[in-house]
């Protein structure tokens, strides 16, 4: 069963030209199409990895899922019901069910709060528990994430290492007893030697408490390690989706192939393949209707520039790529 469904999800940002340009040159607004026609599901208890370069729309997607931004088009359904237009208690309940873990453990904790207060802030804001009940839960969750409360509860964030801070971030998400976690690059600011510990913690907690996760990262080697399925995005469009191993070992889309080939490998004898792409990453400002990777794609023809294939969500385990030319390109 899918806990979350994104159906034709789109988000456009208007860029208004300056007053003079509008008045005298009759310039119209242009639009950044940050996310365009995204179809994907998150299944119960799974980790969906979302990967892509800057401007691919992964952060915008997460912001919309956490109901901090309204989509321009399409729908977000949580447990079968649309979350758009939720208000009051229903919105609070939804926010409680979907918790975020942020990228920067140095920035995401209020420097003037003590650790216990940071973790207790969510329940306090929503009035979930108070007094001893709240204290008990804060202590329990701090212990669970490997921060003994006797040592950590009264400290301030600046007294903690990066790894410890990220554990605080995880604790303050988990105390809300969420049904889904959105983790936005939770490891990228941490030292290599402690990343695996945080990753283990997230996996253990998922196994224990049974929630679904969206794990956003630009690092495909980590995603390959942590995610059940991977979604590859490029300039707001979904390029490929499928089981993690499949996508990484056997990429179909020319973009995915380039991306995976370009990931550096910790082996001095290996060299990355020269990626088969042209030009530079642009911005999705007033993009043409077709595939946004087409201008950089070695296989693209006229049809790619006008028509885009949207992925479907019939079978979540299906490995599919949004490309006309799959047969032509072949595997490998």
């Amino acid at each position: 069963m899918a806990i979350l469904e994104l159906a034709n999800l789109s988000r456009h940002f208007e860029i208004r030209p300056g007053l003079l340009d509008r008045a005298f040159k009759g310039k119209a607004s242009s639009y950044i199409k940050a996310v365009q026609g995204l179809n994907v599901t998150v299944e119960d208890n799974e980790i969906l990895g979302i990967a892509g370069e800057s401007g691919c729309g992964k952060s915008t997607t997460c912001t919309m899922i956490s109901a901090l931004m309204e989509p321009s088009d399409g729908d977000i359904r949580f447990k079968g019901r649309s979350i758009l237009g939720l208000k009051g208690k229903a919105l609070k309940d939804y926010r409680r069910s979907v918790q975020m873990i942020f990228q920067d453990p140095y920035e995401s904790l209020n420097p003037r709060f003590r650790i216990a207060d940071i973790v207790a802030e969510g329940p306090r804001a929503l009035g979930l528990w108070r007094g001893e009940e709240l204290d008990r839960r804060v202590h329990a969750i701090l212990s669970a994430v490997g921060l003994p409360p006797a040592k950590y509860a009264e400290r301030f964030p600046h007294e903690l290492s990066g790894g410890e801070r990220q554990r605080v971030g995880i604790a303050s998400a988990l105390i809300m007893e969420p049904e889904m976690i959105i983790a936005d690059e939770p490891l990228s600011m941490l030292d290599v030697s402690i990343r695996a510990g945080i990753l283990d913690l997230m996996r253990d907690m998922q196994a224990q408490k049974g929630f679904a996760s969206i794990y956003v990262s630009h690092d495909l080697s980590i995603l390959g390690n942590v995610a059940d399925r991977i979604l590859i995005m490029y300039l707001g469009q979904a390029m490929e989706v499928g089981p993690a191993r499949e996508v990484i070992l056997n990429p179909k889309h020319p973009y995915t192939k380039a991306l995976i080939g370009a990931v550096p490998v910790p082996d001095p004898r290996s060299r990355r393949a020269v990626p088969n792409v042209r030009g530079d990453l642009s911005k999705p400002i007033d993009p043409p209707p077709g595939c946004r990777f087409a201008p950089r794609c070695p296989h693209a023809d006229e049809s790619c520039k006008t028509k885009f294939i949207a992925l479907d969500t019939q079978d979540p385990q299906k490995h599919q790529a949004a490309c006309h030319k799959l047969a032509e390109i072949g595997h490998g």
């Binding site: 990343r195 990753l199 283990d200 980590i222 390959g224 390690n225 070992l249 995976i260 290996s270």
Partner: peptide, 24 residues
């Protein structure tokens, strides 16, 4: 050795990552 264990490689996905305990 510890750093090598902790660092993921796309050539070897699914290999268990091991972190180094403690802090610098």
């Amino acid at each position: 050795l510890g750093l090598k264990n902790a660092f993921p490689s796309i050539r070897n996905i699914g290999a268990e990552l091991i972190s180094i305990p403690g802090s610098p």
